[in-house]
């Protein structure tokens, strides 16, 4: 008797946020294809880069400068005689890694900031939002570039930290407005009355309730961060040439000769970034629809 009750209850329960998201992904074939593509690309570049030696690939070889695609080099070589295909693989890996790292770093900070600001409301919210407003009006591209130049011990980690420091505002604002609504709901009020600590309410009760919003925003942020990282590397203020990113490869096209006559150096990474960003966005948009019951397809 009791067992069936539990079973019925289980069935009546609304499906978990993660389940809904996955279901929508499955319904939207374009998003599903994009997701599979992304997983394959990631597996390919991370898998292959184990066998590729980054130092060897970025070593200058003066006897093989600017060679067009051929037998020795699938995608030819750049102005330093470096294999473009190898750089493409490593560049994709580095771009993905930085993109994910920045998304996580800025995400964790932004989510915590938004949750705290929204949950406490009142003066706390007021002060925290004013700080956020000030961050928002900064010309962030220029400030990131300035920091990149003056940071003494510059490497992948510091670069990610600098980028994250200016990329958390969007998600924080979004989470804050959601947390403001959640704190008025019965479950949060009840927990408060029962004496649950604020920390527990914020991170163990409110946060799980807005997890779909978090996943959606982080996915869309990933696309934006990959774009910004490759943009900065393109300008020469991202990853150094010894750790090539997709943007580094494209930046060789600022040489008119390369742009006009050596398409094999810059077209593949440019097209790859485009496809990667579209794929991430397809997944993100499908998740966004899933998170909003009114727009769901299935």
């Amino acid at each position: 008797m009791e067992a069936t009750d539990v079973k019925e209850l289980e069935q009546a329960k609304t499906p978990s946020a993660i389940k809904v998201l996955l279901k929508e992904l499955y319904r939207d074939k374009l998003a599903l294809v994009s997701l599979i593509f992304l997983v394959l690309v990631a597996a390919f570049v991370y898998g292959l880069s184990i066998f590729l030696d980054q130092d060897q690939i970025v070593t200058v070889d003066l006897f093989a400068i600017n060679e067009p695609p051929g037998e020795d080099f699938i995608l030819g070589t750049d102005y330093g005689g470096r294999d473009v295909f190898g750089q493409l693989i490593i560049g994709t890996r580095n771009s993905l890694t930085i993109g994910i790292l920045v998304t996580l770093l800025s995400g964790v900070f932004g989510i915590a900031y938004g949750l705290i600001s929204g949950y406490y409301g009142g003066h706390v919210d007021n002060v925290m939002m004013r700080i956020l407003d000030f961050m928002n009006i900064l010309p962030f591209l220029f400030i990131i570039i300035s920091f990149v130049v003056i940071v003494p011990d510059y490497n992948t980690i510091t670069f990610s930290l600098i980028m994250s420091a200016f990329m958390w505002m969007g998600i924080a604002r979004l989470i804050r407005s959601k947390a403001l609504q959640e704190r008025e709901l019965d479950y949060a009020q009840a927990s408060k009355t029962l004496g649950t600590s604020n920390f527990n309410i914020i991170f163990k009760q409110v946060m799980p309730n807005i997890v779909s919003l978090i996943i959606v925003t982080m996915t869309l942020n990933l696309a934006a961060n990959i774009g910004l990282e490759s943009g900065l590397s393109f300008l020469g203020f991202g990853l150094p040439e010894s750790t090539p990113s997709l943007g580094t490869l494209i930046s060789y096209a600022t040489n008119p000769q390369t742009l006009e006559h050596r398409w094999w150096i810059w077209v593949p990474p440019a097209v790859l970034i485009l496809i990667l960003m579209l794929a991430v966005r397809n997944v993100g948009e499908a998740l966004k629809r899933a998170a909003d019951a009114r727009q769901r397809r299935g």
């Binding site: 943009g231 494209i250 970034i273």
Partner: peptide, 22 residues
Amino acid sequence: TYIGFATPLFIFSLFMLWIFGY
């Protein structure tokens, strides 16, 4: 608009320069 939203400006401009400029 969907594709334009996902396209980084610097990549698009490079293609514009390549096609219409060169």
